[in-house]
């Protein structure tokens, strides 16, 4: 059983980050995989096949969410003590911060952290050039840091 990379695990974690609901995430992943089995092209690069599963899960998640999330994207570099904010974040807090990020930064940064796909495939999935992808990831990273910092400061 250890002979394969269980990419479906990050697929579920990704679905859960986008939906914040275990049952909805489980359903989205199973439906995606089943649909993939039915419509899988006969000759397809395995990495592309996996990327398509992530794309499909994302599509299902976005369909269940209303509106087009939009927010100003921060620019620049992380402050030197950024690590402290990351240390103070538990999974619940981090998931809620990631969930609240605007797209496509949310997807880009989440997939990078989940180590689910190569960045080139994530960029392809989002229709972004590599340079744009790097900017989107950095914007999301800074937004996460800002959110974690404000939560840490607000905590008693």
């Amino acid at each position: 059983m250890a002979d394969r990379d269980a990419w479906e695990h990050p697929l579920y974690r990704f679905a859960h980050l986008l939906l914040r609901d275990r049952e909805a995430a489980r359903k989205a992943v199973l439906e995606t995989l089943e649909a993939g089995v039915k419509k899988r092209p006969p000759h397809i690069d395995p990495e592309r096949l996996i990327m398509l599963q992530f794309r499909d899960v994302r599509r299902r998640a976005l369909k269940s969410q209303s509106g087009i999330p939009a927010a100003p994207t921060p620019k620049g570099e992380l402050p030197a003590d950024a690590e402290m904010a990351a240390r103070g974040a538990d999974a619940e807090k981090l998931e809620s911060v990631l969930y609240a990020l605007p797209e496509p930064g949310r997807t880009a940064y989440a997939l990078l952290l989940l180590d689910a796909l190569e960045s080139e495939w994530i960029a392809k999935m989002l229709g972004l050039a590599q340079a744009e992808f790097a900017e989107v990831v950095q914007g999301a990273r800074l937004a996460v840091h800002q959110a974690l910092t404000s939560r840490v400061e607000a905590a008693p």
Binding site: L78, E83, A86, L94, L113, D115, V144, H145
Partner: peptide
């Protein structure tokens, strides 16, 4: 890298 690694571990 330190920031991302900590977040990845948390997830």
């Amino acid at each position: 890298l330190a920031f991302d690694r900590l977040l990845a571990q948390t997830l």
